Amino acid sequence: MNQEIYEKLREMRLPIMAEEYKDQSENTDTQNMTFEERLEAMVLITKLIVNTVSKLNCTHN
C-alpha cells in the first residue's frame, strides 16, 4: 500500500475510500484486478456504505 495515497484520501475527507484502498492493497484477490476494476469496486463499495449510513440516519431522525 502506498501510505501517501492513503493519507491523501483521508486529507480529502474520503475516509471510506481510504479504508477501501487499504483493504484492496492487502487483499490478494484484488491485486489481480485492473486499475479500472479496482477503482470501480472502490466507488461502488463507498457508494453503498454512504447510502446505507444515510438511510440509517434518516430512520433515527
Rank of each mutant, 00 (worst) to 15 (best):
L14Q: 02
L56Y: 07
E40Q: 10
H60F: 11
T28I: 11
Y21P: 00
L14S: 07
A18F: 04
H60N: 14
C58H: 14
Y6P: 03
K8H: 11
E36V: 04
E40S: 15
Y21R: 00
I16Y: 04
R10F: 08
N57Q: 13
N27L: 02
N2A: 07
L39R: 12
E20A: 12
A18K: 00
V50P: 00
K47N: 05
N32S: 06
T34E: 03
D29P: 01
V53E: 04
F35G: 08
M33R: 07
M12Q: 12
T34R: 04
F35V: 11
N32E: 02
E20D: 08
I5H: 03
V43G: 02
M17L: 14
C58V: 12
M12A: 15
M12H: 06
Y6V: 06
E36K: 08
T28D: 12
F35P: 03
E37Q: 14
Q3R: 15
P15Q: 02
Y6H: 13
V50Q: 09
A41T: 12
T28Q: 08
Q24R: 00
S25I: 01
E19V: 05
A41K: 10
I49W: 04
R38E: 03
S25W: 01
I45P: 00
M17R: 10
M42I: 11
L56P: 00
Y6G: 04
I45H: 10
R13Q: 15
T59V: 11
K47W: 05
I5S: 03
T30H: 01
E20N: 06
E20I: 08
V53N: 04
L48M: 15
T46L: 03
A41E: 14
M33F: 03
E19L: 08
E20Y: 07
T28H: 09
M12N: 09
K47V: 10
D23N: 15
R13D: 14
T28W: 05
L39I: 07
R10H: 05
T59S: 12
L9Q: 06
T52C: 06
I5G: 01
N51G: 05
T59C: 12
E36Q: 08
T46C: 06
T46H: 03
E40M: 12
N61C: 11
M1N: 09
L39Y: 10
P15N: 01
M42Y: 06
R10Y: 06
E11I: 14
K22A: 12
N57A: 13
F35E: 13
Y6N: 03
K8F: 11
T46K: 04
C58D: 14
T34G: 08
M42N: 10
K22E: 11
Q3L: 15
Y21S: 00
N51E: 10
N32I: 00
E19I: 07
R38M: 02
N32C: 00
T46G: 05
F35W: 12
T28S: 13
M42P: 03
T28L: 12
M12Y: 11
N51D: 09
E19D: 12
A18Q: 01
L48Q: 14
N2V: 08
S54H: 09
E11Q: 15
D29K: 07
N32G: 03
R38Y: 04
D29T: 05
M17C: 11
R13T: 12
E36C: 02
C58M: 14
M17Y: 05
N57G: 09
S54I: 07
I5K: 09
L48S: 15
M33K: 06
Y21H: 01
Q3K: 15
S25F: 01
T52S: 10
E4L: 14
K22F: 11
A41N: 13
I16V: 13
N2E: 10
